[in-house]
Amino acid sequence: MNALEVKHLIKCFDGKEVVSDISFNVEKGQLLALLGPSGCGKTTTLRMIAGLDTQNDGEIWIEGVLASHGSKSLIPQRLRHIGMVFQDLALWPHMTVCENIEFGLKAKGLAKTERQKKIDAVLTKVKMQKYANEYPSRLSGGQQQLIAIARAIVTEPKLLLMDEPLSNIDVKLREEVRQEIRRIQHETQITTVYVTHDQEDAFLLANKVVVMNAGKVEQIGNTEEIYSFPKSLFVANFVGESNVIEVKIVGKDKVSTPWGEFACNTKGHEKESAFLFFRPHQARIEKGGQFDGVIVNRNFVIDGYMYRISTSGGEIKVQDLAKYEVGQSVKFSIKKMEVLFF
């Protein structure tokens, strides 16, 4: 049984469709990432699942029960059992950490001793026991993050929704908090939907990724499928650094590119427009390279340098360990490539 199933969701604001016909599902205990640029409708989708917005059409099923159908909400908020972490965290500044967490338990009508037990447990889980009586404003960004998560999971929700939870945290902390999220999700096995525009978040955390653009689903798959076999031009460009070059297939395993014709696996197609797709690290600058180009830009990256090379087929990105100067003419070759049809 799927923990969450979204079918043909449509949402309009002022007559404009911002979410159009979205469908996906999440299996129990899994983490699904909704990945896409800002304004693609992913947060709106999340809010509809949470019941904060109502869709114009479509269905949302939670653990096999129809939660909302069209603009009708069938399960009221208090019975949906959802935990949510907001982008701005929305920790209540006038309550202590403990009170923040306790709020949901009180709303569920739990007794005082029970509440205390659960608060202790969840604070232990996020390793924040000693901050129980602090006000949120006294905590660091990362700590606030963990409290927001604790608040969301203390009620043991069927579904945990996270809206860009890491976007306000600096890079160093980000990694740590991300690991914590991973650990907590693994330990609690709460089905999670995670909205992000950061592919790194998506790839490191998610069992399944839904790439969205302009209100539509572009591709659904595990991280490897998304990274290596993008199903659309958008996914190819959006996920990771890549080069996508328009080519023509002129025969069996033969393509015509701006740099001339060469052999390549065309997957059985013989006459068609297609795209040549390769990642910067799949190309190499070398003496006896196949193609010519001039380096126009060089950036230092963790492993080596990222070059922008001007060629007869436009600019391409190549990653290489060796150091070349800007303005230098070089030769490069593509070690691994893929022909894609969109």
Partner: peptide, 28 residues
């Protein structure tokens, strides 16, 4: 921010509880 109230809504608290424990105190 809207999220202050929504955080309470999602948890499933009644609006009066949100009103009394979140909105009004925040607005003192």
């Amino acid at each position: 921010p809207h999220s202050m109230e929504e955080a309470g809504t999602v948890i499933g608290a009644s609006w009066y509880r949100i009103l009394g424990n979140i909105l009004l105190p925040l607005q003192s």
